[in-house]
């Protein structure tokens, strides 16, 4: 599973990054987590609000500080 966190380095984006890492660890998933800060790449996903999470090329959420719990349920759905 490939995870991308889109954000230009604000506090909320780092919060989401650590929540995603926690979620991956707690679920024991085999996933790569990458942080995307380049605005062109962020825009290529079509999101207009950050932080956003991309799971295997699909935007899972945009513009909210999702909790570890919320991210876990998204990852569980995506990994099925």
């Amino acid at each position: 599973m490939k995870l991308k966190i889109l954000g230009m380095g604000c506090a909320k984006c780092s919060k989401v990054e650590s929540n995603v890492k926690d979620a991956v660890k707690e679920l024991g998933l085999d996933a790569t987590v990458e942080k995307v800060e380049d605005v062109k790449e962020i825009m290529s996903f079509g999101v207009m609000a950050t932080p956003a999470l991309v799971i295997d090329g699909k935007v899972a959420f945009a513009g909210k500080t999702a909790t570890t719990k919320e991210i876990k349920s998204m990852l569980e759905i995506a990994s099925k």
Binding site: V39, I42, M43, V47, M48, A49, T50, G63
Partner: peptide, 17 residues
């Protein structure tokens, strides 16, 4: 519309585009 200063750039591009 939900907004924080960290979203201002993608939002700006999205609008102009």
């Amino acid at each position: 519309t939900p907004f924080c200063s960290c979203s201002s750039v993608p939002l700006f591009i999205g609008f102009v585009e």
